[in-house]
Amino acid sequence: MSNLMVFVDHRDGSVSNVTREILSAASSLAKELGVALHALVLGDSGAGDCSGQLAEYGADKILVAEHPALSTYLSESHGEVVVSAVESGDYSAIIFPATAKGKDLAPRVAASLDTAMASDVSHLEIAEENLEATRALYGGKVLVRLRFTAFPAVITIRPNVFSAKKTSGIGQVTNIDVTLPMPEGYKVKEIETLGRKNLDVSEAHTVVSGGRGLKDPANWRLLEDLRDSLGLEAALGASRAVVDAGWRPHGEQVGQTGKTVAPRLYFAVGISGAVQHLAGMRTAQIIVAINKDADAPIFGVADYGVVGDAMEILPVLTEKIAELNSEE
């Protein structure tokens, strides 16, 4: 087998958590295969400054493409650069983080390379000398194992699926020449960021989700307090019922017609646990349900449950967690 490549997602000079996670997973796979792990960074000049961080998570070779046309993400120009970088090497797999950018870019790259792609892979292994990927189907009801018969395999991996572990790679930096016209016919007019520090529910390590059981949008204050007590890697989520009611923005919706999340810790507060909601969160590592109805279906997937009134439980829970933090 040949080398592995990871597409680097970075913001403001810093490599995203999911990229570190993927590098770690790819690095152990590369070691098992006895091949090198390459990281590909695209951006305006200075994008390559994050190379040190990439080496710390196992990158042996870092390919850096810097060009003003790459300062904002445009699928066509990014796609062109990725495809030519891939074609000038020999790779068995190209792995993208399943972020908005990665999900947009990876299928374009797969189509240009005329190869096979598996999205949201949760496990990668070598079986009978073949690369095999596991992913979920039908909203997480089934797991399928897939073997690739076209290469390089294009793969996306969601945040929080693997854990980031430091391991040193060779970290040799190579600049790639990019000649790109400024893109035409596609213009980013505006970027609006909502809320706190840009941390999206799909990337958070901990998610605090609320449903109709919260009774009133004003009660979200209680969920915000809980989120704040859980630190910077926590974000708010919501059920569709409260999004449809206009209490919360759709960007927070978790479920079949919202986001799929796989955090370490998921709180479902006043959420009944309809199958469409479960489709978006059942792969969370630990699920805590808070619901006043002991028969609510959410308890069927939860690891820990509290039966009671959310409005009474939340302030106490927040206080206990804050106490725990202050002991440290």
Binding site: L137, L143, F148, F299, A302, V306, G308
Partner: peptide, 29 residues
Amino acid sequence: HLVVTGMEYPPERDGVYIVEEGLEGVSEL
């Protein structure tokens, strides 16, 4: 070019542990 080699159900969770009612329950959680 994606050959299915098998399907399975996701691993079962151990089942929910319901903590006791009231404030004690929250500390335990």
